[in-house]
Design a protein around this nucleic acid. Structure first.
Lengths: 213, 213
DNA sequence: TCAGTTGTGGAATGGATCGTCCATAACGTA
DNA sequence: TACGTTATGGACGATCCATTCCACAACTGA
């Protein structure tokens, strides 16, 4: 009956995300998005509402993706490899920031910085994302403790919060201008200082540690 | 000869900072600043140039203040108290974010997130600030190592980068919505995991540690 | 007291931007 | 094939905002 849409919604959202990511919410014009997607303004507004709704959609999808990446790296697997999974995740996040030569940073951080204060939707979604990441990290830390790779006297909740803070902090100091090599070192160091069980030797925190994956 | 200014420049900058802090760069209008300071637009532009220059001024002052706070807490003092100074600093930063009920975050992070990508002045100034903080932290960590409060096998440069990341990360996850109590715990945990010298008992990382100042 | 210089503040300007509107196009169904 | 419904996209209106302009005020040195 009706005329069907001539565009792929996912693709449009992708282009819109690129724009918001590159120039922030206030800094991107709807005309930019129209141009980038090839859509006319009428179609854009007809399909997504207004600028705010479109951003919420993009922001929400991004948050979902952030959690999915973490799930892909962390969730599931034998306890014996839990520490390796944690290490892989933290290093992956550091590498993402280190290789972000355009200094775009993370849309989650950027959006939260710009809008969380005044936009309850953004604030709520970012908070949800944080707690989801916390849960994933805590689960993995508990697994590593069961296998004896992390001191079981430590509170997994607290270590999870610390690792989350380091991951998000790497993003922040990266955007603030620290060089890629330093960012990678931070990931190393954060993993190296995790408390080992009594009597077990801790990983190197010295000047030339072999980077273990 | 000329007519003297009828306003206090410092005070005007303070009000302008409040505005930029509250609503970001793109989000604040020059009219807002004119209203907040009581100045007319002519005076504002005559005294500070344009919006960009005014923001650079405010941003620069903020960065200076951030470093000064760190210097006040960290620089100087006996080696025996170096670890306590580090602890005080990290906890102070956590407390700042924890008590920021308006979720304004830090202007340094906010400004860098919004502008660093496209504004070399902001990018440069924030990078300078990071390296200044790194230097302060490294010096203090070395002092604590001399006194035997931190394992001297650890690289002070790396530990400093880790602590800086934690401090900036607390700011980030705070803005993202983690609750104040968690933020305070993160500061505790970050200090607790610092490597102790061989054979010395590490601080508690367990579930109910006494918060030492 | 007067002249010259700079500060003041609000009106005016010019450009940019969000969102709407509408004539037209494309599709499925009867 | 004709019709109803939705999509399309570019022009348009209204608003907003940074910056300039200008008439006037305040001050100092001569």
């Amino acid at each position: 009956m009706p005329r069907p849409r001539a565009f792929d919604e996912r693709q449009v959202l992708e282009r819109a995300r690129e724009q918001f990511w590159a120039t922030g919410y206030a800094g991107t014009r709807m005309d930019d998005i129209a141009q980038a997607t090839g859509l006319g303004k009428g179609s854009l507004y007809g399909a997504f509402g207004d600028k705010g709704k479109l951003f919420h959609r993009v922001f929400g999808d991004w948050c979902t993706a952030v959690v999915e990446v973490a799930e892909g790296r962390l969730a599931g697997g034998p306890d014996a490899e839990a520490l390796a999974r944690l290490s892989g995740y933290v290093h992956l996040m550091a590498e993402n920031t280190a290789s972000d030569t355009e200094r775009r940073g993370c849309l989650l951080a950027k959006g939260a910085a710009e809008l969380a204060q005044h936009d309850p939707t953004v604030a709520g979604r970012s908070a949800e994302t944080m707690t989801a990441l916390l849960t994933l990290l805590r689960t993995e830390i508990s697994a590593a403790q069961r296998h004896g790779d992390i001191d079981s006297a430590a509170d997994p909740e607290r270590l999870a919060a610390l690792l989350l803070t380091v991951v998000r902090g790497i993003e922040a100091v990266g955007k603030a201008g620290l060089d890629p090599e330093t960012l990678r070192n931070i990931a190393d160091t954060a993993l190296a200082v995790l408390p080992m069980p009594e009597g077990q030797k801790r990983l190197a925190t010295g000047r030339s540690p072999a980077r273990e994956n």
